[in-house]
Design a protein around this nucleic acid. Structure first.
Lengths: 222, 222
DNA sequence: CAGCTCAGTCAACACTCTGTTGAGTAACTC
DNA sequence: GAGTTACTCAACAGAGTGTTGACTGAGCTG
């Protein structure tokens, strides 16, 4: 009930208050340890003691740097968020002459961004269920990709390259959720899944067909 | 290390050995309590004491019926598995004259099956990460839907209604993972998501276009 | 019906993990 | 050299898990 001496109120960063730069290496060590351990264990299977020992500190000292395990994951996820930013915006200036190439670049960027921190991505996906902060941060990451997708589909419809049809937003959300799930099965070695080598091609096929074509008989019977 | 008196070796069911029918109502009470509590809490947030109290027994007695919380979830998931069986096989005998109607029925069946036990579905999705038994059971459930999908796509290609293209298996897996993820966001109230009322229509659009059509320019440039 | 078995039950224990307190130390500051 | 501030941890106080060992009562069996 009583918070830590001063580290819990008016917290500027996700971790400790950032007045002095000393001790940053400890914080960094905790983050590095967390990402290393997440490579072959669930966050739930990693104890705070594991994190502390990995960083060369005692368990109570851990609480000086982070209020909980989840806060560590959240900080890790912030970085993925930052990388997702630059990756998604890198696509904005591309030419739309060859749609397939453009969309392939987009899907690959999505894949590459999360692949670089797959342990974090998998851990975050699990932590979403029980932690609203993780859920919201992940939402924000996904929302970025969805928005990007929406804009491009809309511009393709505006210039007549893609036909009108179901709401752009719904399509963009659905396709991005598909990408997310397929990638997750690959990163977490779940089954059934698509072989990593064919994943982008398969996803691209679905994206192109559902954005640029319309079946003649989309009958809403029933 | 030492197991319970006799309940742990040569276990036939997921729960206790099933020699006598008495006490089944207790086991049932645990399962009912679990599904009720899962409606607004994570499995991790539910203690074994919660489950035991909900069923009107003490915590040690819980262990007479189930070896762990996860075993309860697994039993719950077995039922979904059984329902998924009948739902998926209900589709086998349908006519293929109107593909849109057939696929709509399939997607709706998937949706309905999991919707009936959405709390279990959401809990299982989370428990997959840390529990290999849950992971395998869920795999088996998904594999059923994928296999069903594969067979229908293949027969559509064979009769010339659908064009050849990317591997049937890859397409079937990808589309089912998309359905799974979109449904999960709806059940778990995640964002971004598709409004429940438009979900089936949106998914159907993607299914039809990626099964029956082929973009002229699926250029694998790069 | 006396004696035995066995499903079912739980108080009490041992253990692990979490989060907190309070007492420190070492550096830098005026 | 007195005071502040960053940082550290032994020790404590839970909460939860899984286990033990003793108990109850219904059902058989001789």
């Amino acid at each position: 009930m009583a918070p830590l001496p001063a580290a819990d109120k008016a917290r500027p960063s996700r971790s400790r208050r950032g007045t002095r730069p000393s001790g940053d290496d400890r914080e960094q060590a905790i983050l590095t340890t967390a990402e290393r351990l997440l490579a072959d264990r669930t966050l739930g299977e990693i104890s705070i003691d594991d994190l502390a020992r990995g960083a060369g500190i005692s368990r109570p000292t851990f609480y000086f740097y982070f209020p909980s395990k989840d806060a560590v994951l959240l900080t890790l996820l912030d970085r993925v968020n930052a990388e997702a930013d630059s990756a998604a915006f890198g696509l904005s200036g591309q030419s739309t002459d060859d749609p397939a190439t453009l969309w392939r670049a987009g899907i690959s960027a999505f894949f590459t961004t999360f692949s670089a921190h797959r342990a974090v991505a998998v851990a975050a996906a699990q932590a979403k269920a029980g932690n609203s902060e993780v859920r919201e941060l992940w939402s924000r990451v996904m929302e970025k990709w969805v928005r990007q997708t929406e804009e491009i589909i809309q511009s393709e419809r505006d210039r007549g390259a893609a036909p009108p049809g179901i709401p752009v937003r719904d399509l963009a959300v659905t396709l991005n959720l598909m990408n997310e799930r397929v990638m997750h099965t690959i990163f977490a070695a779940e089954h059934p899944t698509v072989d990593e080598s064919r994943a982008v091609d398969t996803l691209l096929h679905v994206w192109l067909n559902s954005i640029y074509l319309t079946t003649p008989d989309v009958a809403c019977s029933g």
